[in-house]
């Protein structure tokens, strides 16, 4: 047979016609995430990033110190006061639906003695006393069976292969590792995709509340209380994007509803916050026709009392230098 240029054109265009497009929604979100990460990395250097990670950035209430309150003037004050339980630094909570934070299945905070944060990815971060421990998720770039074989086939010296083998083994999800928190932060700042990019802030003496509830409550614009439930709206554009709770530039993503997102808070008998649910707008400004509405952001405080400080995990081993390097890019 002959192959004329037009035959080739036709065949190639036939191939294009049988190729499905990509879903724009996830790509747009990935693009925004990447831009947010780059902004975070560039913003005022590492010190500012560390401050953000440790939750040291306060969100400002819209319109300064005089929030707009409708229906119930006392409700917003009750919301502010509900944070005192979290500020005391002893609580247990879960978190889901935050924009750039992996869902937290259970986090136990006893600020003086430490914390234990378990993520839905199966990664855990724990501080017991003055020592911090990490248990990697066991998933990601280096979890595949052929990784070491690839290194061997690349012709690396045996000593290097052994070094990588140790690091890769430490990421398999069965080891607790003794880590330097500052080096974890540096690994997360490497401009690569890392499981560390999506960790929550860790509690600090000056900021024991890591739930993010304070930033959301600070952005509340309307509140109405019925029993132990407070409902109303908040202005998402006033929530600091460095906290990674909501998408950067929410008005560009959600449109006008970004400034009046509906929330529902619940309090316990002592007026302490037990839950905060933020409904993300169902219709997005940039929504593809087949895109599903986003899941709400949900913070649930399950316990304030009887929290014991976490204990050091048995058989924890020191993390190696190469493991930090692998962690910096384990989500590519």
């Amino acid at each position: 047979m002959t192959l004329a240029p037009d035959d080739l054109r036709t065949a190639m265009n036939d191939l294009a016609r049988t190729t499905g497009p990509l879903d724009p929604g996830p790509i747009l979100r990935s693009g925004k995430r990447r831009r947010t990460r780059r902004h975070l990395a560039a913003a005022a250097g590492a010190a500012a990033a560390i401050a953000a990670v440790t939750g040291g950035i306060a969100a400002l209430r819209p319109g300064g110190d005089t929030p707009v309150v409708v229906s119930d003037g006392k409700a917003i004050q009750d919301l502010d006061n509900s944070l005192h339980g979290l500020d005391a630094g002893t609580y247990e909570f879960s978190l889901s639906g935050a924009y750039l934070i992996t869902d937290i299945v259970r986090a136990r905070v006893e600020a003086a003695g430490g914390y234990d944060i378990e993520y839905s990815s199966a990664m855990s971060l724990r501080r017991a006393g003055t020592t911090t421990y990490l248990k990697p998720s066991g998933a990601g770039t280096y979890s595949g069976p052929g990784v070491l074989e690839q290194l061997k086939s690349a012709g690396l010296p045996q000593a290097e292969i052994d070094r990588y083998a140790t690091g890769i083994a430490q990421l398999d999800g069965t080891h607790w590792l003794r880590v330097d928190p500052q080096r974890l932060i540096k690994a997360a700042q490497v401009d690569e995709q890392s499981s560390l990019d999506y960790l929550a802030p860790t509690p600090a003496a000056e900021k024991p509340d890591i739930t993010g509830a304070d930033a959301l409550i600070a952005a509340v614009t309307t509140a109405e209380r019925t029993g132990d439930t407070i409902t109303g709206t908040l202005d998402a554009t006033k929530v600091d994007s460095k906290l990674r709770l909501l998408i950067d530039e929410p008005a560009s993503y959600y449109g006008a509803p970004a400034t009046s997102m509906r929330y529902r808070a619940t309090l316990d008998g002592q007026g302490r916050l037990t839950g905060f649910t933020l409904d993300l707008p169902g219709t997005l400004a940039s929504q593809a026709p087949d895109q599903q509405p986003e899941a709400p952001l949900v913070i649930t405080i399950t316990r304030y009392d009887g929290i014991e400080p976490p204990e050091a995990p048995q058989d924890a081993e020191p993390i190696t230098d190469v493991t930090y390097d692998l962690l910096a890019r384990d989500n590519d």
């Binding site: 191939l15 190729t19 499905g20 497009p21 940039s286 593809a288």
Partner: peptide, 14 residues
């Protein structure tokens, strides 16, 4: 951007 991805990404993939 989303319109571009929806209408042109199949050809880029090809």
């Amino acid at each position: 951007f989303t319109a571009f991805v929806a209408t042109r990404s199949h050809r880029l993939i090809a």
